[in-house]
Each structure stands twice: as C-alpha cells, then as structure tokens.
Amino acid sequence: MAQRLKGLSVAILATDNFEQAELTSPKEALEQAGATVRILSARPGQIRGMKHDEKADSFPVDQSWNDAEPGDYAGVVIPGGVFNSDVIRMEEGARRFVQAIHDQGKPVAVICHGAWLLVSAGLVDGKQLTSWPSLQDDIRNAGGNWVDEEVVLDGNLITSRKPDDLPAFNEKLIAALATVEKSDTPSAAQAT
C-alpha cells in the first residue's frame, strides 16, 4: 500500500470534540499510503479530540474550510463524535466544502455521527449508507437508505458505523482515492 496515494491531498473536516480514533486512524492510513493529510476546521488553532466521553488530545488545524479550495483535495474524511457532528453540520463552510468535493465526484468518507453533515448538506437522498445506529431515522427522513453494515460505498460516498469499523473504512477509502486521477488535484506541494 506504500505510496499508492503519493501526490494526493486529503482533507479531514472536524471541530472540537471529534471522536479521536476516527480522525487519527484514517489520517495515519492515508499518510502511510503516501497522501498528504490536512485538518480543516472553522478557524485556525487547535481542536480537541474525545475518547468516547473523555477529553483527549489536541491537534493543529492546517486551514479553515472557508479558506481552503476543495479542488486542491482528492477527497474528504469526516470523523464522528456527537458534539463535533452536531456542530459541524451547522457550519455553512463545512457543508459547502463537502458538497463541492461530492459534486467533483471525489470520495467523501464519513464515519459514525459524521453522517449528520451529509444529511445537512443534502447529500443522502437516494443513497445507501450506514452510520451510528441512532442516525438511521435522520438518514431515512432525508431520503437515504440506512443499512447496518461495516462499510458502505454508494457512488463516491463511503460510510461506516463506529471505531471498530475503521480497518474496513480505511481500506475502502484508500481504494477509492487510488482511482482519483493525480491530474485532478494539484500536488501536495501546491496545496495551500
């Protein structure tokens, strides 16, 4: 898998109180595959992760999603965490960023409660996806077909339920990103 994604940049969108494993595991897998990974949030500084219901580590934000250019990225990852997901879904800049990546046909990978952002961005109608089980009514009410599976790929949407699904989620994400043409995105050195 080494260097399979060399030359690609991937965004991770998060706010404070994201589920830490759902950011760190994909980030590590993507970097091991050669991708450049950048954490985007509402504003520069630091964001804090959670390990379930306990505060965890802080991570530097590389750029605001309001200043980032979606075309510079080969795909986007959205970790869960109840508090993170409830806040990020209300952020217009996050919704716009995810919609743009989706409209470009690039992978949009979401785990756990992160699917709330897909609902608020209007991206689940007619799609099959999974999430933390408590979101199934939200997804169905938004026109999606919720299923209880480890990882689901529908078009360019990749969804998983929980941290236990991360190995399958990461594998599916890397496989999807490997199909993105390197010429579709600027090199990591050009990404701002």
Results as ranks from 00 to 15, higher is better:
residue 169 F to C: 06
residue 44 P to K: 10
residue 96 R to E: 12
residue 158 I to E: 00
residue 159 T to Q: 09
residue 166 L to E: 05
residue 140 R to Q: 10
residue 149 E to S: 13
residue 182 K to L: 13
residue 172 K to V: 06
residue 76 V to N: 02
residue 135 L to E: 11
residue 108 V to K: 02
residue 126 G to M: 12
residue 129 L to P: 04
residue 79 P to E: 04
residue 133 P to E: 01
residue 42 A to F: 00
residue 171 E to P: 00
residue 32 Q to A: 15
residue 103 D to Q: 14
residue 92 E to F: 03
residue 127 K to T: 05
residue 84 N to D: 07
residue 171 E to H: 12
residue 15 T to D: 12
residue 81 G to P: 01
residue 64 S to T: 06
residue 178 A to D: 15
residue 106 K to E: 07
residue 55 K to L: 15
residue 84 N to A: 05
residue 134 S to T: 10
residue 114 G to N: 07
residue 187 S to R: 13
residue 140 R to D: 02
residue 14 A to Q: 12
residue 37 V to R: 10
residue 78 I to E: 01
residue 147 V to G: 12
residue 10 V to K: 03
residue 7 G to D: 09
residue 172 K to N: 11
residue 46 Q to I: 03
residue 165 D to R: 01
residue 120 S to C: 00
residue 133 P to D: 06
residue 183 S to L: 04
residue 74 A to S: 11
residue 15 T to L: 15
residue 103 D to F: 00
residue 1 M to A: 14
residue 96 R to L: 08
residue 71 G to W: 00
residue 2 A to N: 11
residue 170 N to W: 11
residue 25 S to A: 15
residue 137 D to A: 08
residue 88 I to D: 02
residue 6 K to H: 10
residue 68 A to V: 08
residue 38 R to I: 10
residue 78 I to G: 01
residue 61 V to G: 01
residue 182 K to I: 10
residue 170 N to E: 08
residue 26 P to E: 09
residue 42 A to T: 13
residue 89 R to T: 09
